[in-house]
Amino acid sequence: MQEVRENNVLQPAMPKCWNEETKPHKFCPGCGHGMILKALGEAIDELGIQEKVVFGCDIGCSLLSWDFFACDSVQTHHGRTTPVITGMKRANPDIIGIAYMGDGGGYAIGSQHLFNAAVRNEKMTIILCNNCNYGMTGGQMAPTTLPGMKTETSPYGRDVEQTGYPTKGPEMVAAVAPEGAYVARGTVANIRQLKGFIKKALENQLAGNGISFVECLSSCPTNWRTNAKQTWEFVEKDMAQYFKVGELRTPQAKEGK
């Protein structure tokens, strides 16, 4: 990784495709979004696709990324980023369409879009930030809230008898997507691996194989009301225990390749 020295402090460089004018970014301290977007930015840089990318962001904390990149971008509605990018890619297959959303946008209000985009094997990349709650609206229960986890709308802990178990998105996408799909779950606790997954997801779109979907386990200390140590413990232990990190689907290597 490139490093620069500024004011005598060693700092990692920003990805080239980041929009410097909007940095420092607007996420809370300790939020995982910035880490996911850094992995994404580096992947975009390495593939040299900055001018071809159209980055769509959902509503929720992910909307704060609307001017995060020096790439064409668009804000949509809650849950509707998948269809907007689908429509773009269908109308102009030359773009690299990235839909960026949270767990509420992907697994609740926009779940029909995610499911059907996967079934149709839309040639797009969906990156979903899973932080176990609705962050921007103040920490309500999300489809991904862990059993027993306390949120504003499950103050006594998520009761699985009443509200079901956390949604396993990549497992669902992997189950319904046809051949050519790439599906993985990474975590901000292993950024090198996450970046690898995201890069493969973009390569899969470039190759025109099918849908590529990466869920990123992420942190939300503001709403979790955790300190740094507890935050990392939750991401690394509690979340990873329920949500298994790794690749769920990779496209078969085509013959002759």
């Binding site: 949509t76 509707r80 269809p83 429509g87 269908r90 109308a91 102009n92 029909q112």
Partner: peptide, 18 residues
Amino acid sequence: TEDEISAGFTMLGGVMTG
């Protein structure tokens, strides 16, 4: 598409690409 919500939004994606 999977519903009219999606039909509307995919169309918006389409027009955004010109």
